[in-house]
Design a protein around this nucleic acid. Structure first.
Lengths: 221, 221
DNA sequence: ATTTCTTTTAATGACTTCTTAATAATTGCC
DNA sequence: GGCAATTATTAAGAAGTCATTAAAAGAAAT
């Protein structure tokens, strides 16, 4: 996993930025097309994506969307088009920030730093006995590692992030499986079952993950 | 009941915002005229209204006022007119917040989130021994959890929200079962029965849920 | 390639909620 | 009181939802 994945079709600018970022201590990988960017992302992952919108072939928005469908990696969009519509689009697609070219390098660096810090600070959730590390996607219970799968982690996280509120089944399903998923909604209840088995004192009468009949599930009373 | 009712006459912007809000996990319904907004609100209700002031036909202020006359649903007003007068008007009419176009999406989202959180803390109705948590859809009686079904909760809530007033059977039925429901109206009385069983000290002579002969029911004397 | 882990599917059973329908009780009115 | 309309009560069962289980399919790791 690399710190930053830089997607920029201008070779010269790409090289320059790479150097600059490396000089700041980040590990960087770069791509000059959307296709290559996705394949790099797929292979190695990245903690942050710097994404040019104007790309030959697959455009930046498509890349942005594709990345967002997989993970919640922060994305900063770079663009020459200074239109608000683009901005809205970018935000719609889940970009975290937006910088217009020609950009001030210091501002860009500051935003990158900001994102890394924000993410870092946000990256641990404590809830009762449980500690969720959002980066590592690990859970510990009373200090002991509690192995959970990806889906279980996502479920647990979403429930805890909305604790006290009922989270609709549809919401859980759409967010975790994707609204265009072909899977049966039934699979959710099975995952809930696994989760309960792992975290509940008595899985037969769950205290943490409550069933809200006809609606969904709720963390806590 | 939907999370957000969006009232915006610009079709494109309306669509974009809808998507954006849905991506944030809110359920959204939208209207492009004031009339349609009110009818949607009437039919399905909403936890928050995002309201454009400049609407063709019935204007935003009228909509705002109409909604406020019914319920205390929070309203955020959106407007291009950057006039102080509007702002004053909006707040006078009970809007909870006010955003000028072109608005920063992040700010809008932050405000929405803020309102939902504030409401969350507020979304509790206390009535005698009973505490209704509208978000969790739970009832506690003297601190102890009192399990109620969806329909029972809806009934209880509607009665308490109109306490002292008689709520017509038709009104209860239409709101909870839906005006196009195929169920027998009789089912309502059965649910009233279950509710009384759960909350009344002596279900034989109900003190909380009074029968108003020929009309409906009333909470309290 | 094999093994292990995760995810999904499918089938079953249990459970909750809701509805219906029949009967009893109550109310308003003559 | 007696009658009609309305509401209450009850129990049965229909409908819907969820839990559980096992097994198959798919991924990832060794």
């Amino acid at each position: 996993m690399v710190d930053i994945l830089l997607v920029e079709d201008n070779t010269e600018l790409c090289g320059l930025l790479c150097e600059l970022l490396r000089a700041e201590g980040y590990t960087v990988s770069s791509a000059e097309t959307g296709e290559k960017a996705l394949s790099l992302y797929e292979k190695y992952g990245a903690r942050l994506v710097l994404l040019d919108i104007n790309l030959p072939g697959m455009d930046g928005f498509t890349v942005c969307k594709a990345i967002r469908e997989k993970e919640n990696t922060p994305i900063i969009i770079l663009t020459a088009r200074a239109e608000r519509e683009d901005k809205l689009n970018g935000i719609l697609l889940g970009a975290d920030d937006y910088i217009e070219k020609p950009y001030d390098i210091d501002i860009l660096l500051a935003k990158i730093k900001g994102i890394f810090q924000r993410r870092l600070a946000r990256d641990i959730i404590t809830e009762g006995d449980l500690v969720l590390d959002l980066n590592a996607e690990t859970v510990t219970k009373n200090g002991e590692a509690l192995p959970v799968s990806m889906k279980e982690f996502a479920l647990l996280r979403m429930l805890i992030e909305n604790k006290g509120q009922t989270v609709a089944k549809e919401q859980l399903f759409n967010r975790i499986w994707g609204s265009d998923s072909e899977s049966e909604p039934q699979t959710l209840t099975v995952h809930i079952k696994w989760l309960r088995e792992k975290i509940e004192a008595d899985p037969r009468s769950p205290q943490l993950i409550q069933t809200v009949w006809g609606k969904g599930y709720r963390w806590g009373g």
